[in-house]
Write a protein that binds this DNA or RNA. Structure first.
Lengths: 170, 170
DNA sequence: TATTGTTATACTCTATAACTATA
DNA sequence: TATAGTTATAGAGTATAACAATA
C-alpha cells in the first residue's frame, strides 16, 4: 500500500500532503497532535535515517545492491585481502551476516576469497576487476544520493552535523 | 555472536576495543582503512541511529516494548480515538503494520478498538487505564534513554542538531 | 582453549496484495 | 469508486548456536 518502499524501513512521504490536497472527503480525518515525538533526538534521527535510507534504496535500486553491500565493497577496496571478521567488526554486524553478503558477491563475481598464508583460518576478500568497475559506478550513484541531502546544508553546517552524529556513535 | 543485539539492526560496540585490549594474538589482524565511509552523511546518520536504537532496545528490554510501539502509544494518548490509518500516516508505516501492532497491544489490554459513530469504517484506538499507566513508565524509561545521548550536547547544540535532522526528513 | 569462517535456523520489522465493510 | 481495516504472505536484514579448521 505504501508507494516507494523496497525495504524493511517504512516509507518516507514526499507525498505527505497527498491526502490533504485531494478534494475534501465526506468525514475528514481530524488533525492529530503529535505529542512529544518531534522533540526526541532518537525520533528525529530515526526519521532522518529512514529518509536517507529510502532515497538510497531507490538510487541503488536498478543496480540491485543494498546499502550494506556498498559499505562492504568500499572497505574491501581500501583493504585488499581484508578478513571477513574485520568487515564484521568495522560494519558492526555479526560475522555470519558477512558470510552471506560475501557469498552473494562471490556468485556475482565481484569479489573472491583467498585463504591467507599468514593465518590459514582467514579467507581474505579481494575485489575482482568487475567488482572494481561496479564499485566505481556505485560510488557515483552514492555521491548523487548524498548530494541530494548535503545540499540542504552549508559546508559549515554539514561539518557540524557530522561532528554531532559522531558523538552519538563514538 | 554479537553481544547485546536484540534486533535486526546491528550491534553498536561499546566494546570495539575488546579485541584489541586482549593480549596480542599470534597473527594480529592488521589495522584497516575505513575509506570514505566516515565522510558520508548517510553512513553517520545510520550509525547514530543504530547506537540510539540499541540503547533504546536495551532500555525497553525488560518491558518487552518495541520502539514503534512507544511512538504509537504516545500518539494514541495525545489523540483519543485516533484512526489506525492516521497512526500509519503519522508514523509513516503501512496500515497493515499498524494492525499488527494494535493487535498485540489489544491482547495485552493496553488499548481498545471502538468503532467510530461518525464513520463506521474506522476503529478508534483508546488507551486503557493499564495502557496509560504503562505508558507513563515507558516515558520515564525513554527520558532516561534520551538523556544518555542529549547530555553529549549543549542546549544550543541539541537544538541545532534536531533542526538539521528535520531538514533531512521534511 | 580461542578464533575464523561456515551452516542452519529464527526473529523483527515491514511491505504487498487481496479482501470486507462501509462510505 | 474510494477508503479503513483486515488477513495472509513474503522479504530484507540480522542474530544465535553449533560446528570445523586452524591457531
Amino acid at each position: 500500500m505504501k508507494k516507494d518502499a523496497t525495504n524493511h524501513v517504512k516509507t518516507r512521504n514526499p507525498g505527505a500532503a497527498e491526502k490533504r490536497s485531494t478534494k475534501e472527503p465526506v468525514a475528514p480525518l481530524p488533525p492529530i497532535s503529535v505529542g512529544l515525538l518531534p522533540n526526541l533526538l532518537g525520533y528525529n534521527v530515526r526519521r532522518a535515517q529512514i529518509a536517507l535510507w529510502r532515497d538510497l534504496i531507490r538510487s541503488l535500486g536498478e543496480r540491485k545492491v543494498r546499502p550494506a553491500v556498498f559499505s562492504l565493497l568500499v572497505l574491501a577496496e581500501a583493504n585488499h585481502g581484508i578478513a571477513q571478521i574485520q568487515l564484521a567488526n568495522q560494519l558492526d554486524v555479526d560475522k555470519a551476516t558477512i558470510v552471506g553478503l560475501i557469498d552473494r558477491l562471490q556468485k556475482q563475481k565481484w569479489v573472491t576469497r583467498k585463504q591467507s598464508t599468514v593465518d590459514r583460518r582467514r579467507q581474505g576478500i579481494y575485489l575482482t576487476a568487475l567488482g572494481k568497475r561496479e564499485l566505481e559506478k556505485l560510488k557515483r550513484t552514492m555521491i548523487e544520493h548524498e548530494a541530494r541531502f548535503t545540499r540542504l546544508f552549508s559546508a559549515d553546517e554539514l561539518m557540524q552535523l557530522i561532528g554531532f552524529l559522531r558523538r552519538i556513535h563514538p
